[in-house]
Amino acid sequence: MGKSKRKVPGINASSTADISFILLIFFLVVTSMNSNFGLPVMLPNPPEDQNQNDDPEVHARNLMKVYVNMDNEIMVTAGKLEDGKQPLRLKVDELGELRELAKEFITANTPGGVKNDNYPEPKNKMDTITYRNEAGQDFFYPAPFSNVVLNNKHVITLQTDRSTKYEVYFKVQEALYGAYNDLRNDFAKEAYGVQNPAKQLTPDEFELCRRRYVNMISEAQPIDIGKKK
């Protein structure tokens, strides 16, 4: 009788809080929160011999040349220059202009873009863009957009001097990426009728819209004017 009445003493759990606090502090110290953000870039294959010029020949009107000099000034030539016209010169804080110009250049001579004979030739061909994801599902644009004229034959080249600052180069890259992103977003809004494509579309649909405007930025080897004395 006496045995059944005896209470089992409760385990003192007051130190669990301290233990878990120590664990918590350990994790706070050892781990980091910084999530990785960045501009993804695909490098070309290595040149086969050192002196080989690995830039393919491009027609002048199809080419947008962006050059950043050693004083971090930007010079832009979009398409073929009209006689007597000077290339556009920009400062680092005027990159919004570069972005707008790039958008105009990328969409030129395609439906909805400006018509200009000095800007890239159109492809004049309807294309169906499809995308197959890793699970093997195929994706197409919604009905009225199932056939689109792809962007024109433009190429954007970016060249810097060897003593150009990385910060400026990055800002210029970003302005060019921004031009493509704006066009993709505009297209996504039109095709899917959504306000915020990045949040409302599935990653696969978003990838499909990304393929509507393929990134045609190519990087030339930097030239070495800044080092010459």
């Binding site: 990785n36 953000f37 960045g38 490098l43 294959n45 290595p46």
Partner: peptide
């Protein structure tokens, strides 16, 4: 970047905040 190209590590990302 030339070293990366020679090593065929072609997918790069310019990290930024």
């Amino acid at each position: 970047k030339m070293q990366l190209r020679k090593a065929y590590a072609l997918q790069i990302v310019y990290s930024a905040n």
